[in-house]
Amino acid sequence: MTTSVQLDHHAVYATDRRLSAEFLAAILGLAVGAPFGPFLPVDLGNGVTLDYYEKRDEPIQSQHYAFLVPEEQFDGMIARLEAVGVTYYADPHHTEPGRTNQLFGGRGAYFADPDGHNIEILTRPYVRP
């Protein structure tokens, strides 16, 4: 079956939409867009936006977001994490601090955003059977 379904945008709950959007954009080397209604978008450059939505009245449920990033930009992202004092990990359970992984012939790391979302950067996509 052939399909042309694509992800267009995803709402990301945050206690402070500006803080969270600017954090992710800064680490990934992206820009925060203009507000769109209650949303503050970060354009990922592949036609998909993360639309940060402020939700202060109840706890934020941690989600996992994985970003396929160019190999030549990976070290810069790690350096930006270090510059702002954010610990990165080689594993999704955050038990190997200050290390990266070498999964599937690439490099990867995990870190938490201001609301505890588990962010992953990887330079090679996962190999799926």
Rank of each mutant, 00 (worst) to 15 (best):
33 G>L: 06
49 T>M: 08
33 G>K: 02
111 F>H: 02
56 R>A: 13
81 L>C: 03
30 L>V: 02
90 A>L: 02
59 P>F: 11
68 L>V: 02
62 S>E: 11
53 Y>T: 13
8 D>W: 00
32 V>H: 06
9 H>G: 08
22 E>R: 03
19 L>E: 14
43 D>N: 12
88 Y>N: 01
9 H>A: 12
102 Q>T: 15
51 D>G: 07
18 R>L: 14
72 E>G: 00
73 Q>F: 12
8 D>E: 14
2 T>I: 00
103 L>C: 12
25 A>Q: 04
30 L>E: 04
114 P>T: 05
124 R>L: 01
20 S>K: 00
70 P>R: 10
12 V>S: 05
81 L>P: 00
82 E>L: 09
119 I>C: 03
121 I>H: 01
12 V>N: 03
55 K>T: 10
43 D>I: 02
29 G>H: 09
77 M>A: 06
129 P>W: 02
18 R>K: 15
123 T>R: 01
71 E>Y: 05
109 A>E: 06
52 Y>Q: 09
55 K>M: 14
111 F>R: 03
118 N>S: 15
124 R>P: 04
114 P>F: 09
37 G>H: 09
33 G>V: 06
24 L>T: 10
9 H>S: 13
51 D>V: 07
96 E>F: 05
65 Y>E: 10
25 A>Y: 09
10 H>I: 15
75 D>Y: 03
83 A>F: 01
94 H>M: 14
71 E>H: 11
105 G>M: 04
119 I>H: 04
81 L>A: 08
83 A>T: 05
4 S>D: 14
30 L>C: 09
91 D>Y: 07
10 H>F: 15
106 G>I: 05
117 H>N: 13
78 I>G: 04
51 D>S: 01
25 A>S: 00
94 H>G: 07
111 F>D: 11
41 P>G: 02
102 Q>I: 08
21 A>P: 09
73 Q>G: 08
21 A>R: 01
29 G>M: 09
39 F>A: 11
116 G>Y: 04
84 V>A: 06
66 A>V: 11
86 V>I: 13
121 I>T: 05
7 L>D: 09
23 F>D: 07
62 S>W: 00
